[in-house]
Structure formats: C-alpha cells, structure tokens
Design a protein around this nucleic acid. Structure first.
Lengths: 229, 229
DNA sequence: TTCTTGTCACCTAGGTGTTAATAT
DNA sequence: ATATTAACACCTAGGTGACAAGAA
C-alpha cells in the first residue's frame, strides 16, 4: 500500500484547482509527489515510476474578469474545445530504480527530479504535457521478476496507485492568483516573493482564510492595465 | 580495467605533496576521485567502493621556516613519531551501487559524495582518518555473484585498483602554501580566493611556474606575524 | 608551539515567480 | 486577446579557504 505525503497541502491546492508550470527547459512539480510505501518484499527488486494521463479530452482557457478599472484572472476555467493531440506518453523512472523493497520502504520516496515540459521535441527525458490541459499523475510499482519468462507475468507484477488530489492543469503562467499565492507561501524556493512574516506560515495559516477580493488586493500583478469593459 | 580521470591534476598535486582537509562535519576530496571503467559484463551487477589505507606507520608534523622577519610553513614534512592507533576502517560505497556494468561504464564514475572526517565518533558514515597521517585511496569493484553460495567465490569476485598519484596527507589546515594555491586555482568552489584573471587558468597555467618565494609573496596568510628568530 | 575548531564571506548550482517582449 | 518565452532578482543548499580563538 502507498500513502501520499503532504496530503494536506495537496488538498489545499486541489481545492483551488492545482496548476503546474511547464517550461521548455523543464519545471519541477510543486508540491513534489512523495509517497511512503508499505508491504513490499524487503529482499525483492522493484522499479518505481510515474506517468501522467489526461483527465478529459478538453482544452481549457482562462477567464478574465473586469473589476473596477482593472482586469484579473479569475479562478474559474472555460472549456475551450477538444484536447490537442496527445503528447508522447513518457514515463519517469525514479532514479534509484531498481532497488530492494527494504530500501524503498525505509524512507519517503520523492520524485523531486521529475520535470514537466511543453517541448514536444524534448530530449532530456522530461515528461511532455500540453499546456491548458488537465492531467492525473499516476504512480506505478513494478516487481522485478527473477524468473526467466517474467514477461508472462507482467500483469500481476505491476501495481498502479492514483491520488485524485494530485490532479492539476498544466500552464505556462499561473491563471489563478490564489494558486500563485499558495505556491509562494509554501515553496521554500519562492521565499523571495513573500511579503508577510515568514513565521506566519504555516503556523498561523488557515486554508481559505483569504476572500477573493483581498487576494486581489494583495496582488502585485494585475493582468492588464486600464480596463477595457 | 580502470582509468583515473583528471590524472594530470592529480599528478600536479602529488608532485607538491597532496593534502586533504578533514573536518568534524566531513569534507569532500579535491580533486574528486573519478574513474572510467572498461570490460565489465554489461548485464551483471557490481558494487563500487573505496577505502583508505595508511601509507606508512608514521605521524608527520609541519616544518616552519623563519624567512626575513616572517615564518612560513615549508613544503617539507618531518616524521614526528609512530602513527596513532588506526581509525575504524570504513568503506564508502558509491551511492549508485549496486548497478549493471552497462550503467557504470557509460559515463565517468565520480565519488563526489565521499567525505573525510577526523571525528572518531562520526555517525554520518564518512571516512574517518587521522590528521597528519598519509593515506592511499583504493578503489574496489565487487561482482555481485547470483549463485547461492556466492560467499565461496568472494576472492575471485573482487578486484582492487590503486593509483599512487592519489596519495595524500590528511590535515586540518593546509601546511604547504603551494597546495593551497593549486586548490584555489583549480577548485571552482574556491573561486572567491583567486586574485588573478579567472581566464588565466587553466589556459595559461604551466605546472610549477611559480618559484617558492613568489608563491610566498602572493600569500594572504603568513603563518605567524612578527618573527621569533 | 603546534594543531584543531567554528564562523564567515564568497563562491557554485539550481529552483522560484515576475516581468517585458514576443508569438499565435 | 490570449498564450508563451527568456532574462532576471531572489531565494535554497551546500562547497571553498581565511581567520581568530581555543586546545593540547
């Protein structure tokens, strides 16, 4: 069995509609996909890997709201038509693969080397995704069967785990400002963009404490300058 | 067979008498011990590891020379008696171990995670050495024998490689100023201490170009202040 | 006197969202 | 109008020798 780490944080993002940046060079996920694993054979070899499947066959687009004299990205999404052709269905092997069950179970397994890209021609082995599409990360455990005819047992040596709270929309720039704020508040590498006391989070942090308009008021980046209504 | 990487740099250090810093927290080696490996069975599993054996049973001490009104550490060593009791003979497994021969051979194998310490009670798994003693790094390749009674074949499944040019003296502070200068010139992490045009090295660098006294003249750290002769 | 320790400024290496410019 | 790109300031994380203070 498998337990998702940082589930509370994933839930908080998921409630807002998680977005993950994709870039040409490849961008890590945040939160990072991390799991605790139980019930492996300590002496057997396993491969651990992830892939990403489309949640639906839709393409999304942002909604821009005119508010007073400025326009902001809303937190809602419009369906913008059918999905683009599927990207090459790459998988990411955890770099420690293969390893013994004992090794995998003795500490949290972290996929922090995994990177997302929108470059269809990527040759760095990153996961290729379509921007403005929704994806479901999947986690797979493969038992390395020592038998000669192990291909025959491929089906039973394979187990897949899906955590729905890790779904996200791939984007090249954040659409929902509350997602941006939550990333800044919770990702150590974004500390430079925090404007509150660093000690305030997570100690005094309550999920959903900011109403929509106050989130806007804190914004440093209204999307378009003078309004256009 | 095994080929030492950066052999020219190792030779240059060895000519001066290589020194490696040991600290309580653990210090990496520079140059890093790196090798290219040939002739493995691509499909077989191997463990790669290093250990460090005393070159002799002597303890060394520095020689301080009075020159004009200042005193400097000389480049020579005095034997200061018998070696201290041997330290726990730890080994360092390359973190990618075990891995297939194909994996090991397809790129340079680097022991850049290996750290040296003088803390006899170290519990970080670092290599424990006595300061002011000389050591010979050794590199071992272990074939992971799939046979049930593999212990019987331990001898033949084991191969050791020694590069004499990687010998060094463990120190808590550099004794030979020319070693310090060569470290500063060649280690990217010491770039902050360079006072010449960074482009001068290695392009215009000739080994042994600096006579002793000019190396002293460039020094920022005479050992003792007003002389004591 | 000789050796060791801890702190520091200064690097390498690389992960953030921002922003302005560009592409579609 | 909307989406993407590339450069950037600002971080995390950690590897350097210098230096002053301490220990033996």
């Amino acid at each position: 069995s498998v337990q998702l780490e940082m589930k509370a944080l994933w839930d908080e993002f998921n409630q807002l509609g998680t977005e993950m940046i994709v870039t040409k060079a490849g961008r890590r996920m945040f939160p990072t996909f991390q799991v605790k694993i139980f019930g492996m054979d300590p002496m057997a070899d396993y491969m651990l890997l992830m892939d990403f499947v489309p949640v639906d066959d839709k393409r999304y687009r942002q909604v821009t709201l005119p508010i007073s004299q400025y326009a902001f990205h809303s937190s809602s999404w419009l369906v913008a038509g059918k999905a683009d052709p599927a990207t090459p269905g790459r998988v990411h092997y955890h770099p420690d693969s293969p390893a013994k069950g004992a090794q995998w179970m003795k500490q949290i397994v972290s996929f922090d080397k995994l990177k997302l890209t929108n470059n269809l021609l990527d040759d760095n082995g990153h996961i290729i995704l379509n921007s403005m599409h929704r994806y479901q990360p999947r986690f797979h455990v493969v038992y390395v069967d020592p038998r000669k005819d192990s291909e025959k047992y491929a089906e039973e040596n394979f187990k897949t785990f899906v955590f729905e709270e890790t779904r996200f929309t791939a984007v090249t720039a954040y659409q929902n400002h509350r997602i941006t704020q939550l990333k800044i508040a919770s990702n150590p590498f974004a500390k430079g963009f925090r404007d509150c006391d660093p000690e305030d989070w997570p100690r005094n942090h309550r999920p959903g404490a900011l109403p929509l308009m106050s989130a806007f008021a804190r914004s440093r980046n209204p999307v378009s300058s003078p309004a256009h209504q």
